[in-house]
Design a protein around this nucleic acid. Structure first.
Lengths: 348, 348
DNA sequence: CTGATTTAGTTTAGCGCTAAACTAATCTAG
DNA sequence: CTAGATTAGTTTAGCGCTAAACTAAATCAG
């Protein structure tokens, strides 16, 4: 019998032989399913270790056939956020024998375009879906979810979303922490550039900003709160509006890094020294945060970890696991202080 | 017989039945292998179409067992370049039943760290490797390649690399095209910020710049050619050097976008209007190109396509295909004109 | 002390696909 | 007109894993 072109070669069979058990026992050990005695468990563990056994994801996927084929839609292939999501998802997928398939979901967050992309994904075999923002917003509560009938997870959605697993940081608390930092550094007039209402994170981030002001007994002024749409360009206008004020803010907190970068650019053009004359804070810790000058103080979300969690949740769902409790997962954020904050503002 | 939890369900079996052939004939049709009559081919094609059949990648991978398990090392999970590579690779992988596994390769491009990451990848089953820059540079000609004994492909390497499949744009030609544009727009003193010598693209890009000058009869001035290391920070110094010149350039061409963005930032700080007083050009068309103001004129490399090509090449290699001819693949670049170029410079 | 339950496994069958070996018909060349 | 080659398929045997069904021994309730 001709051997087929061999792979790296350690199979579950080899492990079972070495451990003196059946392959099923090894399989059970690997997946934590079934019952087994401590002695057996130990022997299997040793054999797996000794042989450096790595399960073949393809075989796993094929055999369990309920194996996750996770579809991911993206707006822009060249995106740092997407990158982190893919890395996280691939890590989780590697350990769980899941397949990952990507599909372009349209530049604009248009419902029909997205729905069609999701249908295409499911038609080509996806049995679970992972949505990056802002796609989660355009499908939430829409009929497409029911139509597709597959579990959906979203990362960094900003708020729990009915019918989907959400993995996110507490946007409100993060924005509050950032605003507190600014206030503690002496700022009294802090501008806020929000995102579009349609974006789930917007409300939380704005709320955090307001909460911090209130806690410190600072008045909330309508003129200091303007809205962008999360793009660099939009914040060029929004920032301008703030800086043109008769009594302009000494700090601006933008609801994402792109908008904060735009404010940095604006400050440079006006000759405002950062952070002495204008402190700036962002949100997300995307690469632009360190490709601006000075580098941006911002909130870091552990995107890759979040995507990994989300993927694992989907795999568990598909395996018929108990979905209880992991519908809305909150993970920790980090406030990263860099060069756009830190000086006491000049008081007048 | 209890049916297992069914997937979306169209199998090769169903197609074969409808076409009235054996499954192998369908398989041959799908893979372009074997011989078949036109009538049969047409019947199979119709059946595939009608049933909306999508091959199951896992089954394919398992059966051919020579299936590609492509390992990819990354430096930074949050990176636009990586993102595009992953998307391209995943697209190719989806059609060819390849598995993708990612592994962190160390922030610094240190040989031993990288070698260890590659070994880990191969140990966990990777039988082909895909390297993003600048990793290709640190392994080229080193013993690790022979040690691992798996095919390796690199994307955007800057030059053909012995022992690896390279997929790249013609850096020299691209840089020449950009420099030509600048010259045609009237610039006579054009600064160039190069990358580190160790980076394959550097030489080609610098050569392109020089070629364009020569073709137009412009003298090459040493003071106009400074080096950065491809980081934003490095170009802050390099750009300063150029702008401090007694007779500063009216245009600066940076060998990548990050460095060009730094020059934009520098120009803002000095109150130099862009592009009237200083034209700026970058290279790569990374997202920062449109997150600067004005948006950056730059060279676009189709990274996702390149990664797709590279992945396909690896799969072919693994399938024992003829490797001839596709060792060094050149793809087309695009010169993207945005807001940092376009005005005739003020002549003095 | 007996039948029911639990524990700790094993056996069997098959996921969807393809490599390799085979077969049957048709075509060549001498 | 026949041996050898070519064409157009088919059959068989798995790839490496796991779901489901089964078994044998140990434990338990009454």
């Amino acid at each position: 019998m001709a051997r087929r072109r061999g792979s790296t070669g350690v199979t579950i069979q080899a492990v079972a032989e070495r451990a003196g058990t059946s392959t099923m026992t090894v399989s059970n050990f690997l997946n934590g399913t079934g019952k087994m005695g401590d002695a057996t468990r130990e022997r299997v563990r040793e054999a797996v270790e000794a042989l450096g056994y790595k399960p073949n994801a393809a075989a796993r996927a094929l055999a369990s056939s309920g194996a996750a084929r996770i579809g991911l839609v993206y707006a822009n292939p060249q995106n740092a956020f997407l990158s982190a999501m893919l890395v996280g998802t691939l890590h989780a997928a590697a350990t769980r024998g899941a397949q990952l398939m990507v599909q372009h979901g349209g530049k604009s967050a248009d419902y029909e375009t997205l729905a069609e992309a999701l249908r295409a994904l499911v038609r080509s075999g996806a049995n679970a879906l992972l949505l990056p923002p802002p796609y989660s917003e355009v499908v939430v509560g829409r009929p497409i979810l029911a139509e597709l009938g597959v579990p959906v997870a979203v990362v960094a959605a900003g708020r729990p979303m009915p019918g989907m697993v959400t993995v996110r940081v507490d946007d409100r608390a993060a924005a509050e922490a950032m605003t507190n930092l600014l206030i503690e550094q002496g700022h009294r007039r802090i501008g806020f550039i929000g995102g579009p209402e349609s974006h789930g994170s917007t409300a939380g981030r704005r709320q955090g900003y307001r909460d911090a002001l209130r806690t410190h007994g600072l008045a909330e002024e309508a003129e200091l709160m303007v809205d962008g749409d999360f793009t660099f360009e939009s914040a060029l206008d929004a920032g301008e509006q703030l800086l043109e004020l008769p009594n302009p803010p000494s700090a601006i907190f933008a609801a994402n890094d792109d908008m904060a970068a735009a404010v940095i650019s604006l400050a440079h053009r006006r000759g405002l020294r950062i952070p002495e004359k204008l402190a700036i804070a962002g949100f997300d810790d995307t690469p632009i945060a360190v490709k601006s000058w000075p580098p941006l103080t911002t909130i870091r979300q552990p995107i890759a970890d979040m995507a990994e969690r989300a993927t694992l949740a989907l795999v568990t769902r598909l395996a018929g696991g108990d979905s209880a409790g992991d519908d809305d997962v909150l993970v920790d954020f980090t406030l990263v202080e860099r060069g756009t904050t830190g000086f006491l503002p000049d008081r007048d």
